[in-house]
Amino acid sequence: MGPSGSGKTSLLMVMSGIERLTSGKILVNKQDISSMNEDQLSVYRRNNIGIVFQSFHLIPTMTALENILIPLDFAKVKNSLTIANEAIKNVGLSHRANHYPSQLSGGEQQRVALARSFSVRPKILLADEPTGNLDNENSKHIVKLLFELNKKNMSTLLLVTHNPEIAKNCDRIITLEDGRVIDDIKSENR
C-alpha cells in the first residue's frame, strides 16, 4: 500500500522484469533477474510470474479464450486448449469464451485477465490494483476470485492496492512512501 508515486507499481515492474533496476539486484528463488537479458526475462516470467493489471491489458484483436492461450502457447504447454478452457470455466466465463475484449464488461475483462495469469500456474502472481477500474460489486467479485485462485494454485500473491479492505485479505501489508518501506505488518484477519 502507499500513496501515488510511492513506488508500488515500480516495485511490481522490476520484480516482473518489465522495468530495469538502476542499482542493486533482485533475487527470485535465489536467481538474480537483474542481470538477465530480454529473452531470459521472458522465460523467467513465463515460468514464474503471472501479472494482473488495473487496465486488464487483454489483446483487443483476440477472443477471451485466445488471450488465455497466449502464455500457454509460448510456454509450449501440451493440451493448451484444454487448460485454457478449464481456466475460463474457473472464472465463470465459458459462455463468453469467443467474445472479444470490447464485447466484455470491465469485470469480465479482469476475470479473463485472471484466468490468463493463473493458466500457467505461476509461482508468483503480481496484481497491480486489479480492482482500480471496477465498481464495488465487480471489485468484490474479482478479489474473491483472486484469492480463491491463488489459494488453489498455491502461488505467492503480491497485491498493490489503495483499498485497506482488500489489503486485509493479505498475510502481510507493506506500506511504501517515496520508495521506502515505512511499515510492514502481518494482517490480523488472516
Partner: peptide, 9 residues
C-alpha cells in the same frame, strides 16, 4: 503484451 506474457523475441 506478448513479451510480458512470456514470449521470446
Amino acid at each position: 503484451l506478448l513479451k510480458v506474457l512470456g514470449a521470446k523475441r
